[in-house]
Design a protein around this nucleic acid. Structure first.
Length: 595
DNA sequence: TCTGGCTGCCC
DNA sequence: ATTCTGC
DNA sequence: GCAGAATGGGCAGCCAGA
């Protein structure tokens, strides 16, 4: 398949929102691809080069892509900026400014190989090399192909489908039914590499999937939660439940195998364990993965070590949450500080300063045997038996009940510990990899009550939207609180969630009426938050959030975590917005959990 | 050698 | 992370 | 109700340029 034909399929996909139609187009596309290119084609259509857990990064986003388009087509920077503001998509901008080359000389595989090379460029001078390499690739193709290649590199194909719909298409390719679909989906969740799965199916149908199995070194799609805030409703939906504390940390899937050859990871593991000669020499395969299937081993030498020392097993896959704590007081640390562990250098020293606990809450494989089809109860029992006491890994405590009042009490206990709430599970359910179903429920406080006081903020300006929000001319807006002491508005958060399409349109109309040329005189804004359109500070908006955090970027010195608009406060003047003093006092009253 | 801009990825 | 929307 | 696509704060890493 050449790139032009490929782009034609993507264009068909873009022009419909109907799921059945998308599936059918995908099926045709897959059917027309050769076995050798089907994996590449599918990755590209999803804005990837490989499976998520081994996908190379381009390190090219908006700013770099604007440079690429300027270099390739020379439309002028102002025209580029104008088109981007208008269309909200650099692929669409490319379509507009590209010259028309015939472009049927490039195969899908040619382009794929070029992109692999592009992603591999790094080091001094790499930005210039990337700009020039991608430009020369783009000008070799027709403008529609260029449009989609731009989107692929940006990782935002905006075609209305992901891996799950591709699975549907593959199922339809083999004329399967619900059962076969469940089988493909199950395989995908145990081995989330859609390229491999497509290739096997194309090569030898459903039978080909027999070779696709759960294995150490391939992360499993983690099970996810739905959010609810009413204990009665939770019990009604689930009956008897097993509840656990929800820690404000990061999801970590641990893979450990004492017999798996380490291959190229040897040097990684040696540096991972620093001066620990005993572990350095140990030929034990250990890796950790994030919720989004990224390899995070380098962040967690302490978890890797504990997996070797504390787990009484030959091989194992665990699911759990890593939480940092203060080594002196035992208090859990804010998420911000835990994130400082997300580093490549000096992790070992950092781990001494900010130690962490790994609360294991599930076991997915033990000694080569998948356990995902056992009940949660059974899995927890097995898990409890293989964890030996130690500094890092602990079994996540649970509480079983079928009474809303008791669930509520346990929730209150989580609040006194200042945790995020509870994760509530069905004790008799299998591990539903990839599911966002109601099998696991995240029990958090109700939206408006998350902060003790509501926050009313003043709008200072807005940003042009991307993708589908381009048509509103606004994708989000910048807001501030009022500082009485200096009579200025100090920024506290951007808001881009909680508005309906209609609200976006009407709010933008209102904002355009009070548009001004430059930053309001009374506004104190870091250049980091430069808006596209400034407005007079007049409109007050009520914003919900989960908590306040310290901020180095927002001039208020604080920021909202997970902000969303609740409603416009027609009854408030800008000076009536929440004051900086109030923000400070709300922050002070927030508590931290302890270990 | 330091800093700021950009990027990717955690929540 | 939260939220909205088309199917 | 699912699947997808908008959007938030803020962390470290990388690279360019002062």
């Amino acid at each position: 398949m050449n790139i032009k034909e490929f782009a034609a399929y993507l264009d068909k996909l873009e022009n419909t929102t109907k799921r059945l139609e998308i599936t059918s187009i995908l099926k045709d596309m897959i059917s027309e691809m050769s076995t050798n290119e089907v994996d590449k084609g599918i990755y590209l259509s999803l804005g990837l080069l490989k499976a998520q857990f081994e996908n190379p990064k381009f390190n090219i986003a908006e700013k770099m892509m604007v440079r690429v388009l300027e270099f390739a087509y020379k439309p002028g920077k102002e025209r580029l900026a104008g088109l981007f503001a208008d269309k909200g998509d650099l692929g669409d901008v490319a379509l507009e400014v590209a010259g028309d080359t015939k472009g049927d000389g490039l195969s899908l595989t040619d382009v794929y190989n070029e992109l692999i090379e592009l992603a591999a460029i790094e080091g001094s001078g790499s930005q210039e090399k990337k700009v020039s390499k991608l430009s020369s690739l783009l000008i070799k193709m027709d403008k529609l192909s260029a449009k989609y290649v731009v989107r692929i590199v940006l990782g935002t194909t905006r075609l209305g489908f992901t891996e799950l719909t591709v699975i549907d298409a593959l199922n339809s390719l083999i004329q399967g039914d619900k059962l076969t679909k469940a089988k493909i989906e199950g395989k995908y969740n145990m081995h989330p590499d859609i390229g491999v799965i497509a290739k096997k199916i194309k090569d030898s149908g459903l039978k080909g999937l027999d070779e696709v199995v759960m294995e150490i070194g391939v992360p499993i799609e983690p099970q996810r939660c739905q959010r609810l805030s009413d204990p009665v409703e939770i019990i009604e939906k689930m009956g008897c439940v097993s509840a656990e504390f929800k820690f404000d940390g990061t999801r970590v899937q641990v893979h450990m195998d004492r017999n798996k050859p380490i291959k190229s990871t040897t040097s990684d593991q040696n540096s991972l364990f620093g001066d620990n000669e005993e572990l350095k020499g140990a030929s034990v395969f250990v890796k950790t993965y994030t919720r989004n299937l990224e390899d995070s081993t380098y962040q967690y030498p302490d978890i890797a070590e504990a997996a070797i020392v504390q787990l009484d097993a030959e091989s194992v896959i665990l699911d759990g949450e890593a939480v940092g704590y203060d080594k002196n007081t035992g208090d859990f640390l804010p998420f911000q500080e835990i994130m400082q562990r997300k580093r490549k250098h000096n992790v070992t020293e950092y781990a001494l300063d900010i130690p962490l606990k790994y609360f294991a809450f599930d076991i997915l494989m033990l000694n080569g045997k998948p356990l995902v089809n056992e009940t949660l109860e059974k899995r927890r029992e097995i898990l409890s038996k293989i964890i030996k006491p130690g500094k890092v890994i602990e079994l996540s405590r649970n509480f079983v009940t079928d009474k809303p009042e008791e669930l509520s009490e346990f929730f209150e206990e989580s609040k006194t510990k200042s945790l995020e709430g509870l994760v509530v599970k069905k004790p008799d359910a299998q591990y539903q990899a990839g599911a966002r179903s109601f099998a696991w429920i995240k029990y958090k406080k109700a939206d408006e009550a998350l902060l003790d006081d509501t926050i009313d903020v003043v709008i200072l300006g807005y940003y042009h939207g991307r993708g589908g929000r381009a048509r509103f001319g606004m994708g989000g807006f910048l807001t501030a609180v009022y500082d009485k002491a200096t009579d200025t508005f100090k920024t506290i958060t951007k808001v881009g969630s909680g508005l309906t399409d209609e609200q976006f349109v009407s709010l933008r109309e209102r904002l355009d009426k009070i548009k001004i040329d430059k930053k309001p005189a009374k506004a104190d804004v870091d250049k980091f938050f430069d808006v596209n359109v400034w407005v007079a500070p007049k409109i007050v908006v009520e914003v919900g959030a989960d908590e306040l955090s310290k901020s180095a970027n927002h001039t208020a010195g604080y920021a909202l975590r997970f902000p969303r608009m609740i409603k416009i406060r027609e009854d408030r003047r800008p000076e009536d917005a929440t004051s900086l003093e109030e923000i400070k006092s709300i922050y002070k009253n927030q508590k931290r959990g302890s270990y």
